[in-house]
């Protein structure tokens, strides 16, 4: 066995004492390793606008690993390139029209058509935005050249990064001068 205590001691005695002292905060027990993309997965929520979709559930798995020679895949501007896998459940598929998955920015100023959902209500695609919304719409047909949805929104969901929220003007940081951070005067 390697004399790890000696090693630790050589790095600094306080490191050793810290490790021995135990924790004041509990830490999660080691879990069985899982597919890492599940952390960035998020839920799709039904709009209940289409008959047969009121109880529908959906999920999007997002992975940054993909096929890059590096451990993460980035776009030219440094945004993550996410491989997205959409799956819907508990839905009566409308008899007419085609369910299509789209990705849009939070400001909905850019839209990318992912793909039509297959017979298993699955779709895949890639997006290189850090914050985005996945939208499922009911289109008249499967048109790969369509640039923007025209049908009603069936489901939608925000990427996990949407959980980042502004702390301006509220909470523990309300004493900060918002103007200094570019908010109003």
């Amino acid at each position: 066995m390697i004399p790890i205590l000696a090693l630790l001691a050589s790095f600094g005695a306080s490191v050793l004492s810290g490790a021995e002292a135990g924790a004041s905060l509990p830490h999660a027990p080691a879990a069985v390793c899982t597919d890492g993309s599940s952390y960035y997965a998020f839920e799709l929520v039904t709009t209940k606008n289409i008959p047969g979709t009121g109880l529908a559930t959906g999920a999007v798995e997002a992975s940054v690993a993909a096929t890059s020679p590096f451990s993460v895949q980035l776009s030219a501007d440094g945004s993550y390139a996410y491989d997205l896998h959409v799956s819907l459940d508990r839905m009566n598929v409308p008899r007419e029209g085609q369910l299509v998955a789209w990705v849009t920015t939070p400001d909905i100023d850019q839209i990318v058509r992912m793909s039509a959902l297959d017979e298993h209500l699955r779709a895949s695609g890639r997006v290189d935005w850090n914050k985005y919304i996945v939208v499922i719409t009911l289109e008249a047909s499967d048109d790969p050249d369509q640039e923007i949805w025209t049908g009603p929104i069936v489901m939608r969901g925000m990427s996990r990064s949407g959980m980042m929220h502004t702390m301006v003007g509220h909470g523990a940081l309300q004493q900060e001068n918002c103007a200094a951070f570019g908010y109003g005067n």
Binding site: G36, S37, Y40, V64, A65, A66, P69, F70
Partner: peptide
């Protein structure tokens, strides 16, 4: 060798001594 990240198989292998594991990922 980094065989896979998040179950995505590495199609272009290289011998490594250091590799980054992003948050949430499994290598």
């Amino acid at each position: 060798l980094v065989l896979s990240m998040d179950d995505v198989q590495n199609q272009n292998l290289v011998w490594k001594d250091t590799a980054i594991v992003p948050v949430g990922s499994t290598m």
